[in-house]
Nucleic acid binder design. Structure first.
Lengths: 335, 335
DNA sequence: GTGAAAGCGCTAACAG
DNA sequence: CTGTTAGCGCTTTCAC
């Protein structure tokens, strides 16, 4: 063949109009049987494949969705991507990767891509709305927030219950007999950090346990910050016997700090993380942590967004995906 | 405003033809100065943004590139994505994520996306060419292979020198005084595994060291396979004093196996990995490994692909990015 | 240096 | 159930 076949070529060959071909191929159910199969056969034979740009132009859609994260380099997102990619693919959508690196310019740019029709919608995981950008009309249907809450924003959210997860952690530790439990929080005032910390505080209160001064150290979700925070905790006069870190990286940092100070995990100190990132089970000792069902979150977020985009389900709501605590080797009864 | 402004609206407002607006905005240099600035101002004022689909249809381009991996869930790719995303973004391109999961159907589908003009090109990191798909014309300019070699295929490759990296590992271990060095290889006959293993064998030969039977165990690049392989090695009558694993996951698995058997790392056994994945330095002990400059690889691959797509540099070649060994805590002289 | 006209390939009205 | 017509918004000849 000379050129890629267009719809017109098939029409000519089949002796019908382009419209009919279009209808036959799109499965609209508006073409009768002798013609239908014939057109499909010819299309297959000629290796026809619709021109996406033309279709997009005509339908004013792009069949693609932006997934916006703060840092593509963070492995936590991996399975979210995976779940989302899967769901998108099943629905014939593509995923565009967007990495903001906390750069307001990029945040705004990606948002603009949606308002300008470069993508049909977006899954936002940065935890904030960009400034200085054109908020698309009908934003509520085009933007879905995952993992983070954006308070006061009228979007569908797909999140986990951070407070409840914290509660599970404390319950586990208390169950082991711990009474002196410290917390390494994420950066405040980030919503996620606040919720995990609030869950910690509430759970401690519920179990009638005091939270001594300095038992809450603020980290930055980084390995180094966890290390440092743990060092501070271990230098306290009245050391904790267990530490609940608000994410796995900080938990790993804490483990290093503890080991460096000659402690044995979990004998001398129990440590719990949050996220269950890749290889959390490969660490020695394997990390006890909160497992977030990332694939599920990604899939759910994408499906929900697509339902909004197609108008199939315009209802704005907050969907909470359950988490579970995975008990591995970094927690044990206190000595 | 009622609608998103189109090029025509600007033309009307500026009292020129759509053509002129198009030229002015595309920076073609074909519009004279009084008009030029005026058009640009009006466009900015009206919040004009070109319709991508229309442009794509007209220019027969999509300004997007597929990045195809075997498993999006593998953190190794993270910084490659990051580097590639960055480079693409700078050039005005978007990235479409493609996850094959070793499914031939998906491999073919993604390839077809390129032949069908859904994406302009692709960076292929799966290490194999799909069957049963339409190989796009002018493939050589549209497909770029990264990380893996596809022998006999006439594409630009962006790779690392796996053999040389293996050599660095052995050199390091020999420098520490090791003589009994074992290797946990990746799955054979995958090219990457073969090259790393060949590098191991050649380096050992070069240093005049024998490779006893069973000193090369075949793994599957997974944590579990590393654990198992290490166990086998440690059960040999004449145990190795050092193990070189073909990737970090297997190295971590090996560490667990060794610790489980009561060995202390690195005192009783040195272990080296490959890749320097996320948190390889967060492990206790921190992993000695080969660092692949992933961002650099991603950026280079993308830039090179774009140069091919634009015709700026059609030369097909193999680009080798240098690696370095990062010496951390899992290697020490043998006792 | 600027404009008129054509058309990328497709699908959605609107008829019949 | 099928065809005719129109047009999505842009860029690119070609003419002036």
């Amino acid at each position: 063949m000379n050129h890629k076949p267009r719809i017109k070529d098939i029409a000519v060959k089949a002796g019908v109009s382009p419209t009919t071909v279009s209808r036959a191929l799109s499965g609209s159910g508006l073409v009768a049987e002798p013609t239908l199969s014939q057109i499909r056969d010819i299309a297959r034979l000629m290796g026809y494949y619709p021109n996406i740009s033309a279709r997009n132009l005509r339908t004013q859609k792009t069949m693609s969705v932006l997934i916006v994260v703060r840092d593509i380099g963070n492995p936590f997102y991996l399975n979210i991507f995976k779940g989302a990619e899967n769901a998108a693919r099943d629905a014939g959508y593509s995923i565009l990767m967007a990495n903001t690196e906390d750069d307001p310019k990029k945040e705004a740019d990606y948002f603009d891509m949606v308002s300008h029709g470069h993508a049909d919608g977006m899954i936002l995981m940065t935890g904030k709305m960009p400034h200085q950008c054109q908020i698309p009309e009908d934003t509520a249907q085009k933007v879905l927030i995952a993992l983070e809450m954006i308070d006061g924003a009228d979007f569908t959210h797909v999140i986990i219950d951070n407070e409840a997860a914290s509660h599970k952690v404390i319950e586990h530790l208390v169950g082991l007999g711990h009474k002196k439990i410290a917390h390494i929080s994420g950066p405040v005032p980030e919503g996620m950090s606040i919720r995990r910390r609030a869950g910690f505080e509430n759970a401690m209160a519920k179990f009638g346990l005091p939270i001594p001064q300095d038992y809450i150290q603020r980290g930055a979700f980084s390995y180094q910050s966890g290390e440092e925070a743990c060092r501070k905790l271990l230098q306290l006069d009245d050391r904790p016997t267990a530490i609940y870190a608000a994410n796995d990286e900080m938990a790993f940092g804490a483990i290093r700090a503890a080991k460096t100070m000659g402690l044995s995990i979990p004998r001398d100190l129990s440590i719990v993380g949050f996220d269950d990132i890749y290889l959390a089970d490969g660490f020695v000792p394997a990390l006890t942590t909160i497992h977030q069902p990332c694939m599920e979150i990604g899939r759910c977020a994408m499906n929900r967004l697509l339902a909004h985009l197609t108008g199939e389900n315009p209802k704005i709501e907050t969907i909470t995906i359950p988490t579970e605590i995975i008990i591995r080797e970094t927690t044990a009864p206190p000595v």
